[in-house]
Amino acid sequence: MADSVSQPKSFQEILMRLQAYWGARGCAVLQPYDMEVGAGTFHPGTTLRSLGSRPWAAAYVQPSRRPTDGRYGENPNRLQHYYQYQVLIKPSPPDLQALYLGSLEAIGIDMDLHDIRFVEDDWESPTLGAWGLGWEVWCDGMEVSQFTYFQQVGGHDCRPVSGELTYGLERLAMYVLGIDHVMDMPFNDPSSPTPLKYGDVFRQTEQEYSRWNFDQADTAMLLQHFVDAEAECERILSAPAEDAAGRRIVMAHPAYDQCIKASHLFNLLDARGVISVTERQAYIGRVRALAKKCADAFVTTEAGGAMDAAEEAGAGA
Protein backbone atom coordinates (compact mmCIF):
# COMPACT_ATOMS: atom_id res chain seq x y z
CA MET A 1 0.00 0.00 0.00
CA ALA A 2 2.96 2.30 -0.55
CA ASP A 3 1.03 4.28 -3.13
CA SER A 4 -1.73 5.07 -0.64
CA VAL A 5 0.63 7.14 1.49
CA SER A 6 1.58 9.54 -1.26
CA GLN A 7 -0.60 12.56 -1.77
CA PRO A 8 -2.42 12.82 -5.10
CA LYS A 9 -1.71 15.92 -7.14
CA SER A 10 -4.83 16.32 -9.23
CA PHE A 11 -8.54 15.65 -9.60
CA GLN A 12 -7.94 13.01 -12.22
CA GLU A 13 -5.37 11.23 -10.08
CA ILE A 14 -7.94 10.77 -7.33
CA LEU A 15 -10.40 9.42 -9.85
CA MET A 16 -7.84 7.04 -11.29
CA ARG A 17 -6.82 5.83 -7.84
CA LEU A 18 -10.44 4.99 -7.06
CA GLN A 19 -10.71 3.11 -10.34
CA ALA A 20 -7.54 1.17 -9.55
CA TYR A 21 -8.59 0.50 -5.96
CA TRP A 22 -12.03 -0.88 -6.74
CA GLY A 23 -10.81 -2.65 -9.85
CA ALA A 24 -8.24 -4.45 -7.70
CA ARG A 25 -11.00 -5.46 -5.29
CA GLY A 26 -12.94 -7.30 -7.92
CA CYS A 27 -15.28 -4.66 -9.26
CA ALA A 28 -15.98 -4.44 -12.97
CA VAL A 29 -14.85 -0.92 -13.80
CA LEU A 30 -17.69 0.31 -16.00
CA GLN A 31 -17.77 3.52 -17.98
CA PRO A 32 -20.24 6.35 -17.44
CA TYR A 33 -23.71 5.79 -18.82
CA ASP A 34 -24.13 7.71 -22.05
CA MET A 35 -27.19 9.66 -20.99
CA GLU A 36 -27.96 12.68 -18.86
CA VAL A 37 -28.66 11.59 -15.29
CA GLY A 38 -29.00 13.37 -11.94
CA ALA A 39 -26.88 10.87 -10.00
CA GLY A 40 -24.76 7.77 -10.40
CA THR A 41 -27.61 5.69 -9.01
CA PHE A 42 -29.52 6.16 -12.29
CA HIS A 43 -26.89 4.23 -14.25
CA PRO A 44 -28.55 0.89 -15.10
CA GLY A 45 -25.44 -0.70 -13.60
CA THR A 46 -26.92 0.34 -10.27
CA THR A 47 -30.68 0.67 -10.62
CA LEU A 48 -31.39 -2.42 -12.66
CA ARG A 49 -28.47 -4.54 -11.49
CA SER A 50 -29.40 -4.10 -7.84
CA LEU A 51 -32.51 -6.13 -8.68
CA GLY A 52 -32.74 -9.90 -8.84
CA SER A 53 -30.56 -12.62 -7.39
CA ARG A 54 -27.42 -12.45 -9.56
CA PRO A 55 -24.21 -11.31 -7.88
CA TRP A 56 -22.82 -8.02 -9.18
CA ALA A 57 -19.87 -5.80 -8.47
CA ALA A 58 -19.28 -2.62 -10.44
CA ALA A 59 -17.54 0.70 -10.04
CA TYR A 60 -17.70 3.71 -12.34
CA VAL A 61 -17.59 7.43 -12.54
CA GLN A 62 -20.84 9.07 -13.60
CA PRO A 63 -21.16 12.66 -14.81
CA SER A 64 -24.28 13.96 -13.08
CA ARG A 65 -26.47 16.90 -13.95
CA ARG A 66 -28.50 18.92 -11.46
CA PRO A 67 -29.78 21.93 -13.39
CA THR A 68 -31.09 23.73 -10.28
CA ASP A 69 -27.61 23.69 -8.69
CA GLY A 70 -26.05 25.77 -11.46
CA ARG A 71 -24.32 28.94 -10.20
CA TYR A 72 -22.62 30.16 -13.41
CA GLY A 73 -19.35 28.69 -12.11
CA GLU A 74 -19.16 31.29 -9.34
CA ASN A 75 -20.03 29.25 -6.24
CA PRO A 76 -16.99 27.49 -4.75
CA ASN A 77 -18.92 24.23 -4.22
CA ARG A 78 -21.99 24.15 -6.43
CA LEU A 79 -22.11 22.92 -9.99
CA GLN A 80 -24.89 21.92 -12.35
CA HIS A 81 -22.57 19.27 -13.80
CA TYR A 82 -20.30 17.26 -11.55
CA TYR A 83 -18.93 13.76 -11.10
CA GLN A 84 -20.06 11.02 -8.82
CA TYR A 85 -18.03 7.92 -8.18
CA GLN A 86 -20.26 4.94 -7.68
CA VAL A 87 -19.65 1.44 -6.34
CA LEU A 88 -22.31 -1.24 -6.19
CA ILE A 89 -21.66 -4.71 -4.78
CA LYS A 90 -24.35 -7.38 -4.52
CA PRO A 91 -24.60 -9.08 -2.08
CA SER A 92 -23.06 -6.45 0.19
CA PRO A 93 -19.85 -8.00 1.57
CA PRO A 94 -19.47 -8.14 5.36
CA ASP A 95 -16.33 -5.99 5.23
CA LEU A 96 -17.79 -3.23 3.06
CA GLN A 97 -17.06 -0.54 5.65
CA ALA A 98 -13.42 -1.61 5.82
CA LEU A 99 -13.20 -1.74 2.02
CA TYR A 100 -14.64 1.74 1.85
CA LEU A 101 -12.17 3.10 4.41
CA GLY A 102 -9.39 1.51 2.39
CA SER A 103 -10.50 3.56 -0.61
CA LEU A 104 -10.14 6.76 1.41
CA GLU A 105 -6.62 5.76 2.35
CA ALA A 106 -5.92 5.02 -1.30
CA ILE A 107 -6.70 8.61 -2.24
CA GLY A 108 -4.42 10.01 0.44
CA ILE A 109 -6.59 10.43 3.53
CA ASP A 110 -4.45 9.48 6.52
CA MET A 111 -6.68 7.61 8.95
CA ASP A 112 -4.35 8.49 11.84
CA LEU A 113 -4.89 12.21 11.44
CA HIS A 114 -8.52 12.49 10.35
CA ASP A 115 -11.82 11.87 12.08
CA ILE A 116 -14.05 9.55 10.03
CA ARG A 117 -17.62 9.13 11.18
CA PHE A 118 -20.68 7.21 9.97
CA VAL A 119 -23.67 9.48 10.58
CA GLU A 120 -27.21 8.19 10.08
CA ASP A 121 -28.65 9.12 6.72
CA ASP A 122 -31.42 7.08 5.20
CA TRP A 123 -31.52 7.26 1.46
CA GLU A 124 -34.70 7.55 -0.53
CA SER A 125 -35.26 8.23 -4.21
CA PRO A 126 -38.92 9.06 -4.80
CA THR A 127 -38.35 9.05 -8.56
CA LEU A 128 -36.88 5.53 -8.52
CA GLY A 129 -39.24 4.11 -5.91
CA ALA A 130 -36.13 3.15 -3.99
CA TRP A 131 -34.87 3.36 -0.43
CA GLY A 132 -32.13 2.07 1.76
CA LEU A 133 -30.50 2.56 5.14
CA GLY A 134 -26.99 3.73 5.78
CA TRP A 135 -24.96 6.79 6.56
CA GLU A 136 -23.34 9.83 5.20
CA VAL A 137 -19.66 9.45 5.89
CA TRP A 138 -18.01 12.45 7.50
CA CYS A 139 -14.35 13.28 7.30
CA ASP A 140 -13.54 16.02 9.81
CA GLY A 141 -17.16 17.15 9.71
CA MET A 142 -17.45 17.09 5.93
CA GLU A 143 -19.71 14.69 4.10
CA VAL A 144 -17.48 12.77 1.70
CA SER A 145 -19.70 9.84 0.72
CA GLN A 146 -23.08 8.20 0.95
CA PHE A 147 -23.09 4.61 2.14
CA THR A 148 -26.33 2.73 1.60
CA TYR A 149 -27.68 -0.77 1.92
CA PHE A 150 -30.42 -0.92 -0.72
CA GLN A 151 -33.66 -2.34 0.63
CA GLN A 152 -35.99 -1.61 -2.24
CA VAL A 153 -35.60 -0.45 -5.85
CA GLY A 154 -38.40 0.20 -8.31
CA GLY A 155 -40.81 -1.10 -5.71
CA HIS A 156 -39.03 -4.49 -5.52
CA ASP A 157 -37.40 -5.81 -2.35
CA CYS A 158 -33.67 -6.20 -2.91
CA ARG A 159 -32.72 -9.84 -2.32
CA PRO A 160 -29.84 -10.05 -1.86
CA VAL A 161 -29.09 -6.56 -0.62
CA SER A 162 -26.63 -4.41 -2.53
CA GLY A 163 -24.17 -2.12 -0.81
CA GLU A 164 -23.87 1.20 -2.59
CA LEU A 165 -21.13 3.79 -2.17
CA THR A 166 -21.39 7.22 -3.73
CA TYR A 167 -18.53 9.70 -3.59
CA GLY A 168 -19.05 13.35 -4.54
CA LEU A 169 -15.75 13.54 -6.41
CA GLU A 170 -15.22 17.32 -6.62
CA ARG A 171 -15.89 17.89 -2.95
CA LEU A 172 -13.79 14.95 -1.87
CA ALA A 173 -10.94 15.96 -4.18
CA MET A 174 -11.05 19.59 -3.05
CA TYR A 175 -10.70 18.35 0.50
CA VAL A 176 -7.83 16.01 -0.25
CA LEU A 177 -6.03 18.59 -2.39
CA GLY A 178 -6.72 21.49 -0.01
CA ILE A 179 -8.59 23.62 -2.55
CA ASP A 180 -11.18 26.24 -1.56
CA HIS A 181 -12.83 26.95 -4.91
CA VAL A 182 -13.66 24.12 -7.24
CA MET A 183 -12.56 26.09 -10.29
CA ASP A 184 -9.03 26.37 -8.82
CA MET A 185 -8.59 22.62 -8.51
CA PRO A 186 -5.86 21.07 -10.69
CA PHE A 187 -7.57 18.76 -13.13
CA ASN A 188 -4.36 17.12 -14.36
CA ASP A 189 -0.87 17.13 -12.88
CA PRO A 190 0.10 20.77 -12.22
CA SER A 191 3.64 20.00 -13.36
CA SER A 192 2.57 18.62 -16.72
CA PRO A 193 3.33 20.59 -19.91
CA THR A 194 -0.27 21.68 -20.17
CA PRO A 195 -1.54 22.10 -16.62
CA LEU A 196 -5.31 22.48 -16.55
CA LYS A 197 -7.50 23.54 -13.71
CA TYR A 198 -11.09 22.43 -13.19
CA GLY A 199 -12.13 25.94 -14.23
CA ASP A 200 -10.22 25.63 -17.50
CA VAL A 201 -12.33 22.61 -18.31
CA PHE A 202 -15.70 23.58 -16.84
CA ARG A 203 -16.07 27.29 -16.03
CA GLN A 204 -17.41 28.18 -19.44
CA THR A 205 -19.74 25.21 -19.63
CA GLU A 206 -21.12 26.03 -16.18
CA GLN A 207 -21.94 29.52 -17.43
CA GLU A 208 -23.49 28.29 -20.65
CA TYR A 209 -25.59 25.60 -19.06
CA SER A 210 -26.64 27.83 -16.16
CA ARG A 211 -28.01 30.33 -18.65
CA TRP A 212 -29.70 27.65 -20.70
CA ASN A 213 -31.10 25.78 -17.69
CA PHE A 214 -32.49 28.84 -15.98
CA ASP A 215 -33.47 31.16 -18.84
CA GLN A 216 -33.42 29.62 -22.26
CA ALA A 217 -34.54 26.01 -22.26
CA ASP A 218 -37.71 25.74 -24.32
CA THR A 219 -40.23 24.62 -21.76
CA ALA A 220 -42.95 23.74 -24.25
CA MET A 221 -40.53 21.47 -26.04
CA LEU A 222 -39.27 19.95 -22.80
CA LEU A 223 -42.83 19.24 -21.68
CA GLN A 224 -43.51 17.55 -25.00
CA HIS A 225 -40.33 15.51 -24.68
CA PHE A 226 -41.38 14.43 -21.23
CA VAL A 227 -44.71 13.21 -22.54
CA ASP A 228 -42.99 11.50 -25.48
CA ALA A 229 -40.46 9.73 -23.29
CA GLU A 230 -43.19 8.57 -20.97
CA ALA A 231 -45.27 7.25 -23.85
CA GLU A 232 -42.31 5.51 -25.49
CA CYS A 233 -41.34 3.85 -22.22
CA GLU A 234 -44.85 2.48 -21.81
CA ARG A 235 -45.02 1.42 -25.44
CA ILE A 236 -41.74 -0.46 -25.28
CA LEU A 237 -42.83 -2.34 -22.19
CA SER A 238 -46.23 -3.19 -23.57
CA ALA A 239 -44.70 -4.90 -26.63
CA PRO A 240 -45.01 -8.69 -26.54
CA ALA A 241 -42.05 -10.50 -24.95
CA GLU A 242 -41.46 -12.51 -28.14
CA ASP A 243 -40.26 -10.83 -31.31
CA ALA A 244 -41.34 -11.74 -34.84
CA ALA A 245 -38.83 -14.59 -34.92
CA GLY A 246 -40.20 -16.00 -31.69
CA ARG A 247 -37.20 -14.98 -29.56
CA ARG A 248 -38.01 -13.87 -26.05
CA ILE A 249 -36.48 -10.39 -25.68
CA VAL A 250 -37.88 -8.15 -22.96
CA MET A 251 -36.68 -4.60 -23.68
CA ALA A 252 -36.09 -3.46 -20.11
CA HIS A 253 -33.03 -1.32 -20.87
CA PRO A 254 -34.43 0.66 -23.83
CA ALA A 255 -37.52 1.35 -21.73
CA TYR A 256 -35.37 2.41 -18.80
CA ASP A 257 -33.52 4.87 -21.07
CA GLN A 258 -36.83 6.62 -21.61
CA CYS A 259 -37.40 6.68 -17.85
CA ILE A 260 -33.99 8.32 -17.38
CA LYS A 261 -34.90 10.85 -20.06
CA ALA A 262 -38.18 11.69 -18.39
CA SER A 263 -36.39 12.15 -15.09
CA HIS A 264 -33.83 14.55 -16.54
CA LEU A 265 -36.51 16.49 -18.43
CA PHE A 266 -38.36 16.91 -15.18
CA ASN A 267 -35.18 18.31 -13.58
CA LEU A 268 -34.81 20.79 -16.42
CA LEU A 269 -38.43 21.89 -16.14
CA ASP A 270 -37.95 22.28 -12.41
CA ALA A 271 -34.92 24.51 -12.94
CA ARG A 272 -36.96 26.65 -15.33
CA GLY A 273 -39.44 27.16 -12.51
CA VAL A 274 -42.46 26.00 -14.47
CA ILE A 275 -43.47 23.20 -12.12
CA SER A 276 -45.66 24.26 -9.20
CA VAL A 277 -45.43 22.68 -5.78
CA THR A 278 -48.53 20.59 -6.34
CA GLU A 279 -47.52 19.48 -9.82
CA ARG A 280 -44.10 18.46 -8.55
CA GLN A 281 -45.40 15.44 -6.72
CA ALA A 282 -47.43 14.38 -9.72
CA TYR A 283 -44.39 14.51 -12.05
CA ILE A 284 -42.25 12.58 -9.58
CA GLY A 285 -45.03 10.01 -9.36
CA ARG A 286 -45.08 9.64 -13.15
CA VAL A 287 -41.35 9.00 -13.31
CA ARG A 288 -41.61 6.56 -10.42
CA ALA A 289 -44.35 4.66 -12.23
CA LEU A 290 -42.00 4.27 -15.21
CA ALA A 291 -39.12 3.16 -13.00
CA LYS A 292 -41.33 0.54 -11.39
CA LYS A 293 -42.47 -0.83 -14.72
CA CYS A 294 -38.86 -1.03 -15.92
CA ALA A 295 -37.92 -2.87 -12.72
CA ASP A 296 -40.87 -5.23 -13.20
CA ALA A 297 -39.64 -5.95 -16.73
CA PHE A 298 -35.98 -6.36 -15.74
CA VAL A 299 -36.67 -9.02 -13.15
CA THR A 300 -38.27 -11.17 -15.87
CA THR A 301 -34.98 -11.19 -17.82
CA GLU A 302 -31.90 -13.33 -17.49
CA ALA A 303 -29.75 -10.57 -16.01
CA GLY A 304 -32.63 -9.87 -13.64
CA GLY A 305 -32.29 -13.38 -12.24
CA ALA A 306 -35.50 -14.78 -13.72
CA MET A 307 -33.77 -17.91 -15.04
CA ASP A 308 -32.04 -18.56 -11.71
CA ALA A 309 -35.35 -18.23 -9.92
CA ALA A 310 -36.96 -20.63 -12.41
CA GLU A 311 -34.11 -23.13 -11.99
CA GLU A 312 -34.38 -22.94 -8.25
CA ALA A 313 -38.10 -23.58 -8.46
CA GLY A 314 -37.41 -26.50 -10.85
CA ALA A 315 -34.79 -27.98 -8.55
CA GLY A 316 -37.10 -27.68 -5.60
CA ALA A 317 -39.97 -29.45 -7.38
Binding site: P91, P94, G132, L133, G134, Y149, P160, V161
Partner: peptide, 17 residues
Protein backbone atom coordinates in the same frame (compact mmCIF):
# COMPACT_ATOMS: atom_id res chain seq x y z
CA UNK B 1 -36.37 1.09 11.18
CA UNK B 2 -34.43 -2.05 10.43
CA UNK B 3 -32.76 -3.56 7.40
CA UNK B 4 -31.40 -6.68 5.76
CA UNK B 5 -27.86 -6.96 4.39
CA UNK B 6 -25.84 -9.28 2.19
CA UNK B 7 -27.69 -12.42 1.20
CA UNK B 8 -29.32 -13.01 4.59
CA UNK B 9 -32.78 -12.31 5.88
CA UNK B 10 -31.95 -11.32 9.46
CA UNK B 11 -32.99 -7.77 10.31
CA UNK B 12 -31.06 -5.36 12.49
CA UNK B 13 -30.64 -1.60 12.53
CA UNK B 14 -27.42 -1.93 10.51
CA UNK B 15 -25.45 -5.11 9.77
CA UNK B 16 -24.87 -7.12 12.95
CA UNK B 17 -21.33 -8.48 13.13
Amino acid sequence: KSMRWGAGSLRWVRPLH
